[in-house]
């Protein structure tokens, strides 16, 4: 089948302002992903089209973009899930500065991630028998959902509160905090909850719910944020 793509383009070395590039591709299979179509544009028609990608199967988190107005990973959207009779529109994710075409500046995103102590701080001393710390399957399950995050920024850049203020750490950073706050082996929940209670923290969330459907890993992001809010008020668990 034939597919038309409308892609937001901007090259700071050449362009005064962004523009829309229109591309027609023939012999598209319904099982092709948007990433494959973008590659075909880049490889067959215009090598200057710029995007990030790596694993191409939804695990590395490189190719978050706005596809028909919704944040998705380009490699996880197949043509058969879209109405291919209409032009497919592809834009960079919102709320982060565009570097070139579909590539945005991820530094502010990772800075927020780093700000929430996204690392394990052991609650107990290292076992002296040289073996693992024990954790019950139930305690492990408590934070399973938030361990799935791949830092693609689909959630954060779909959040109106983040668009309104880049000072907000955003859903992805809260997911990272949640993963450790609810880990029974971790001893720094109070510190993270203090960070979460700061002005740029969790109270900027207005429970708009954009983040949850945006997540390509099916993390219940809004629920995780809610659990962090509750933990600030009532303590963990």
């Amino acid at each position: 089948m034939e597919v038309k793509l409308r892609i937001r383009r901007f090259n700071p070395e050449k362009d005064q302002k962004p523009w829309w590039g229109e591309y027609t591709l023939k012999d598209v299979e319904k099982t092709n992903s948007i990433l494959e179509l973008l590659h075909r544009v880049k490889w067959e028609q215009d090598g200057t089209l710029t995007l990030r990608r790596s694993c191409a199967h939804g695990v590395c988190g490189s190719d978050a973009m706005r596809i028909n107005g919704v944040n998705r990973l380009a490699c996880k959207v197949l043509i058969q899930t879209l109405n291919a009779d209409r032009t497919i529109q592809v834009e960079p994710i919102l709320g982060l500065k565009v570097v070139k075409d579909l590539v945005v500046d991820f530094e502010p995103f990772f800075e927020h991630y780093r700000s929430v102590m996204p690392y394990f701080v052991a609650a107990t001393s290292t076992p002296t028998d040289g073996r693992e710390r024990k954790q019950s399957p139930e305690d492990r399950a408590r934070f399973d959902d938030t361990t799935k995050c791949i830092l693609c920024a689909c959630c954060t850049t779909s959040c109106p509160s983040f668009w309104a203020s880049g000072e907000y750490v955003g859903p992805a950073a809260i997911v990272a905090a949640h993963r450790f706050i609810f880990d029974s082996r971790d001893g720094a929940a109070a510190d993270r909850l203090n960070i979460m209670a700061e002005p740029g923290g969790v109270w900027r969330c207005r429970t708009i719910f954009n983040c949850t459907p945006a997540c390509p890993r099916d993390i219940e992001v809004t629920r995780a944020i809610g659990e962090v809010k509750l933990a600030i008020q009532r303590g963990v668990r």
Binding site: A122, T126, G130, R131, E132, Q135, P137, R140, T147
Partner: peptide
């Protein structure tokens, strides 16, 4: 063996057996 245990010490969330081991 010690490398995997070290990963657990670094916080890696392995799945667990009923007795809490990896």
């Amino acid at each position: 063996v010690e490398a995997v245990v070290e990963l657990e010490w670094m916080g890696l969330p392995f799945d667990r057996n009923a007795d809490g081991t990896i």
